[in-house]
C-alpha cells in the first residue's frame, strides 16, 4: 500500500528563490516556489510541522501552520460560543513534492485525539486552510487514498505533525517541589 502511495524522491538542496515550475508541469509535480511568511496571523502563534519521515521523499520536508485569532471579528479576537479561540489556520509544506498517487490531507485533532476534524486536501502548492475552535490542538498531515471531504478520520500514514503554541503552556504538576499528582494525567489535556 505504502509503495503504491509512495511520493517522489527527495528534492534535495532546495532553492527558495525559484519562482518558475519545471517545464513539464503537472499538478502532482508542482514545486512550492516560496515560503509564505506570516500573512494571516501573528507570528507568535505560528508553529512548525515536523516530518515523520514515514514516507519516502519527506525526509527533509518542513512545514508551518499560521494561526490567526483575529479573523474578521468585530472584536479583535474571534471566539467560538464556548469562549474557545477560533483560529484561522493556514498549512504549508516545503521541500517535498505532491504525491504521485493519493492525497495529502490536513487534519486537526485535540491533544487527546478524541475529536478529529478534516481541514482539507492540500493543493498543488502543498497548502490548505481551515479553522479550529480548540485552545490546544494538533495539526496532522496524512497521505490518504481517498479525497472524500466527509472522511471522519485519517486512514493513511502521518506525513507531518505539529502542536499549537498553547501546547507549550507550562505545567508545574508532577514536577519538583510541587509534585502531587501524576504529571501524565494533567497538563496535556485541553
Amino acid at each position: 500500500m505504502l509503495q503504491i502511495l509512495a511520493l517522489l524522491g527527495t528534492i534535495g538542496a532546495f532553492d527558495y528563490s525559484v519562482t518558475s515550475s519545471p517545464a513539464e508541469t503537472k499538478a502532482h509535480e508542482i514545486i512550492p516556489t516560496h515560503i509564505e511568511l506570516c500573512t494571516v496571523g501573528p507570528q507568535y502563534y505560528a508553529f512548525e510541522l515536523v516530518t515523520t519521515k514515514n514516507i519516502p521523499g519527506t525526509g527533509l520536508a518542513t512545514g508551518q501552520v499560521q494561526a490567526s485569532v483575529s479573523g474578521n471579528s468585530p472584536f479583535s479576537v474571534q471566539l467560538a460560543p464556548d469562549g474557545s479561540y477560533a483560529y484561522d489556520l493556514h498549512v504549508s509544506l516545503q521541500r517535498m513534492r505532491a504525491p504521485l498517487q493519493g492525497n495529502l490531507v490536513a487534519w486537526v485533532t485535540t491533544t487527546e485525539i478524541d475529536r478529529i476534524e478534516r481541514m482539507g486536501t492540500l493543493d498543488a502548492n502543498l497548502q490548505a486552510s481551515g479553522r479550529v475552535s480548540w485552545n490546544k490542538y494538533i495539526v496532522v498531515v496524512t497521505l490518504e487514498s481517498s479525497d472524500d471531504p466527509h472522511q471522519e478520520q485519517w486512514a493513511g500514514p502521518i506525513v507531518m505533525r505539529g502542536m499549537s503554541r498553547s501546547g507549550m503552556m507550562h505545567t508545574m504538576v508532577g514536577h519538583g517541589a510541587l509534585q502531587e499528582e501524576n504529571c501524565a494525567a494533567y497538563g496535556y489535556g485541553n
Partner: peptide
C-alpha cells in the same frame, strides 16, 4: 460571561 479560563498550575484551559 462565557470563557475558557487558564489554570497555570496545571497548564490547562477550562470552561468557566
Amino acid at each position: 460571561n462565557t470563557i475558557q479560563a487558564i489554570n497555570h498550575f496545571r497548564g490547562e484551559f477550562y470552561p468557566h
